[in-house]
Design a protein around this nucleic acid. Structure first.
Length: 419
RNA sequence: GGUGAGGUGGCUGAGUGGUCGAAAGCAGCGCUUUGCUAAAGCGCCGUAGUCCAAAAGGCUACCGAGGGUUCGAAUCCCUCCCUCACCGCCA
């Protein structure tokens, strides 16, 4: 959520920065400003009446204490009760409307985010490794079916399309990856492991900005008004919602493995084969809560922590920076890490590392105590998504005989060197 | 799910429908004094919104949340949420 004061005081620069995301935000800013003026005018008159009421009520108290007649005053106070009720109702409505408008305005892109229209304008920042020279190239679905690592047909039978069942060695590989990732981030990168609930209250989704704008992407348990998490970012960042953290406790660094649930509404048939886009997938998420002064540097190290995963697995990847037209709703700055998948002949996004600035912190009222209370900055990044990592591993490790060689870092976790 | 108890400022903990935004203690900050690994005295010490060009200052709201009664609610009433205890059910 943007700071209403910032909008009030610098409407033109706010509009200009939002415009780099694409058209349509200018009118939202104007609407907020209009409501804000109306709201404050109503609130000011209400407060004036309240002050008057309080003053008179105290006088009534005094009169009564000295056994004097106070009926005239009482009638006076009572007479502006209806006016107060009216104003109070107006303020409540305007307040809610203003909040609703603000919740639907995206974050300002960072000054350092490259300006661009869409994904085609995202600059490649760096590459690591090279595309492997393979004798045999095969799609991971073919590999997995041959080696009986997963079963899409039965996944569809029990849960529907875009659900998969991992079986035997395939299930073990998934488990090996989870353990490898959590061990790496907790023992080498200083993150505290979190195992959060997989369903959350709507407030949590408002906090990290999945709601209200992206309600149709969430799985919702209507009976209890709970939502399946689309990413561990939601429960983990909200861990400290409504809290004031001591300065000395920052930066907070959490790593969490969870399944993630996404309806992918609108992407009919999901447009991809295999494991690349699923309704349920595993992910290890990295979350940081920092001061405003350190968040830029923390984004760099967060990205480096995610890149380390691919380096240890010997997978070729590249890092791109999302331009203003492509960054997510709440993000100020985002790096995507894309791993090379030979069978797809394409790079697959396995991590998206973002600095949200104080945008989420304002929504969830997450502050820290320095000289005075200030909003924290929040960051998160995948470290990494498992399913696409899995794709890259199968396709990159494919041997001429059809088996898959695993990178050494996974041997002890998987319990074998090949599948 | 049932019954009971309870939710007050960073913490502990008082609180009578009316000078209560809230006693007291602890913690914290500042000053003074004595001095030595501290003590004592005094003062300050919640959050948010809003008014004023701004500062100073004023005002408003907040005692789990939302309603209600009243001229006036931390205090009375209703609903909900949460915590704790016991019971029931259960992986």
């Amino acid at each position: 959520m943007l700071d209403i004061r910032l909008i009030r005081e610098n409407p033109d620069s706010v509009k200009a920065r939002l415009a780099t995301r694409g058209p349509g935000h200018e009118s939202a800013v104007d609407a907020v400003l209009a409501i804000d003026g109306e709201r404050r005018a109503a609130d000011t008159s209400l407060q004036g009446l309240q002050a008057e009421r309080n003053r008179l009520s105290k006088e009534i108290g005094k009169l009564r204490a000295s056994k004097q007649d106070s009926s005239a005053l009482e009638a006076g106070v009572k007479s502006f009760g209806s006016r107060m009720e009216e104003l109070n109702a107006a303020v409540t409505v305007l307040d809610a409307r203003q909040r609703d408008l603000l919740l639907n305005i995206p974050n300002l892109p960072s000054e350092t985010t490259p300006v661009g229209r869409d994904a085609a304008d995202n600059p490649v920042l760096r590459e690591w490794g090279t595309k492997p020279a393979l004798e045999r190239v095969e799609d991971h679905v073919a590999i997995g079916e041959r080696l009986r690592l997963f079963d899409f047909e039965r996944g569809g039978k029990i849960s529907g399309s875009a659900f998969v069942v991992y079986t035997g060695a395939g299930a073990r590989l998934e488990r090996a990856l989870i353990n490898f990732l959590l061990d790496l981030h907790t023992t080498k990168h200083g993150y505290t492991e979190i195992l959060p609930p997989l369903v959350v209250k709507p407030e949590s989704l408002f906090g990290t900005a999945q709601l209200p704008k992206f309600a149709d992407q969430q799985y919702r348990c209507a009976n209890d008004e709970l939502y399946l998490i689309p990413t561990a970012e939601v429960p983990v960042t909200n861990l400290h919602r409504e809290e004031i953290l001591p300065l000395a406790s920052l930066p907070v660094k959490y790593a969490a493995y969870t399944p993630c649930f996404r309806r992918e509404a609108g992407s009919a048939g999901l447009g991809t084969r295999g494991l690349i886009r699923m309704h349920q997938f595993d992910k290890v998420e990295l979350v940081k809560i920092t001061t405003p002064e350190t968040s830029d540097a923390e984004l760099e190290s967060l990205t480096a922590d995610a890149e380390r995963v691919l380096q240890l697995l010997g997978l070729h990847y590249r890092v791109i920076e999302l331009c203003t037209g492509d960054i997510g709703f709440g993000s100020a700055k985002t790096y995507d890490i894309e791993v090379w998948a030979p069978g797809q002949n394409a790079y697959l996004e396995v991590s998206s590392c973002s600095n949200f600035g104080d945008y989420q912190a304002r929504r969830m009222n997450l502050r820290f105590k320095g000289e005075k209370n200030r909003f924290c900055h929040t960051l998160n990044g995948s470290g990494t998504a498992l399913a696409r990592l899995y794709v890259a591993l199968l396709e990159s490790g494919l041997q001429p005989d059809g088996s898959v060689a695993l990178p050494p870092a996974l041997h002890k976790y998987f319990g074998a060197e090949t599948i």
